[in-house]
Design a binder for these strands. Structure first.
Lengths: 254, 254
DNA sequence: CGTCGCCTTGAGCCAGCTCAAATATTGTGG
DNA sequence: CCACAATATTTGAGCTGGCTCAAGGCGACG
């Protein structure tokens, strides 16, 4: 993602976790010692399929992944996006069968970690285990906010809200700078995330451009007017539960 | 809830947990030894407020609770309902501040358990801890399905899906019988849960009645035609991750 | 330099909305 | 047990945000 220096999986994981809580030196050591198999997945390809039972969890090193379900009439609903540092199929540790699919929304680099390693962590590092648990609970918070978004916000607000969330989360792992975030999604992905039609999403985006709030160039979103975007979305990032209320963020204060 | 015999909080909790996994004898003992303060909350009253930091978790003993957020324009979105045996503010154990409100949708009886007790459990009973973690992850699964419901299903399907979920979950804790479930919600609650207007919900419900699929009498829903309701909802309960795929259910096979 | 995926635009339509008022139903105090 | 208030449901009518269908433009990539 527009970086020369490519952080490792362990580094991304540490960044992510220290964004939502404190890592003890012992936890940092455990993470640094993590031996993950690196794997590349092409855009659109499955990482874990609905109905399968993974034997490992993946940490996203680079790229953007998403969870989704496909309905019988072919409609798709995306339920979350995952940025580097996330470990979105962690829940397979405690839940036997995937009830949704996980795919690479863009080309992704993943680190695979066998379940057994994480189970060991949980046993040996209770503090780290609590932080992992906290992370899965924050995941739940994000789902709840997503429900609100899709259930009660009109189209434009919905899209703005999603942009706000992505901006804050990306900055939190050091992947956004100067009001500019990687934004490699197609309008069709976006529409499946916010529960609108592609055509409508297109029209809303044009509107945002014409109001000089967000611009899209070259797989990046340039957030030209963060206060306006935030206001339009009625965005309050408390639900992300970042350490210190996200005060360490430079561009996208929540 | 239309029962002469009123199970205790510990009993409901044990039922709930054994519906999603196996309890060891040691776990059952820990649950039975649980000393909770029983408390009643009137319909519509808050159990835990957005922005607060509870020092205890509550177990629902009787009644129906819901999580929701209120938007600045006054719209409300309900993100989940909670039936007896659930412990919906468990996440306050690992997340400092409530990012949504939890309220009694109907008169509720709650058992309050101090955080310290649950923390002790987690330390001393790793098997039980994993089951609690599993429960919070299943909560996440339900949120994801709720996103799909609100994001991509047309109104009637949405409402049917919610009814299916409630039916299965209530039966799972022994609170549904003969195709009949307690259904104490107002149409306004329902509308805030599915993201539709009250008027529209009313019309859909009338339609369901006229097709003889579900009838509503006296705070109960009589599911007159489960296969039809299930088909209408395109309901697949896999996401509830009940033990044995929910095969122990008698009326509402998932 | 063709082709494939994505974005854009136009036009007509409809599911679900809002507003408003009538009619149950439930709860309360006397 | 009744009267009255408050809450919930129902109905009608008109409107609109977002949908679908269909076609055209335009990059990117082999």
């Amino acid at each position: 993602m527009h970086m020369l220096y490519q952080p490792s999986g362990a580094q991304m994981l540490a960044r992510k976790l220290s964004g939502i809580g404190n890592l003890l030196p012992e936890d940092e050591a455990a993470i640094a010692a993590l031996d993950m198999t690196v794997m590349n997945v092409a855009a659109g390809h499955l990482i874990a399929e609905e109905g399968s039972s993974p034997r490992h969890c993946c940490v996203i090193i680079a790229g953007l992944a998403c969870r989704y379900k496909i309905l019988v009439d072919g409609k798709r609903q995306i339920m979350s996006f995952h940025t580097p540092g996330d470990f979105p199929d962690f829940y397979s540790l405690h839940v036997d069968v995937m009830d949704h699919s996980l795919a690479a929304a863009t080309p992704c680099q993943l680190g695979l970690v066998p379940h057994s390693i994480f189970r060991q962590w949980v046993r040996r590092h209770p503090h780290l285990a609590n932080l992992l648990w906290r992370d899965t609970l924050i995941d739940g918070s994000m789902f709840r906010e997503w429900i609100v978004n899709v259930g009660r916000r009109p189209g434009p607000r919905r899209i703005c809200h999603l942009l706000c969330e992505l901006a804050v989360r990306l900055e939190n792992v050091g992947l956004a700078e100067a009001g500019r975030i990687p934004f490699p999604l197609t309008q069709s992905d976006l529409s499946d995330a916010v529960g609108l039609s592609v055509v409508h999403v297109n029209r809303v985006l044009q509107d945002l451009k014409s109001q000089n709030i967000v611009l899209f160039h070259n797989k990046e979103a340039v957030i030209a007017d963060w206060p306006k975007l935030r206001a339009m979305a009625q965005f309050d990032g408390a639900y992300l539960h970042l350490k210190d209320g996200g005060r360490q963020l430079r561009h996208f204060k929540i």
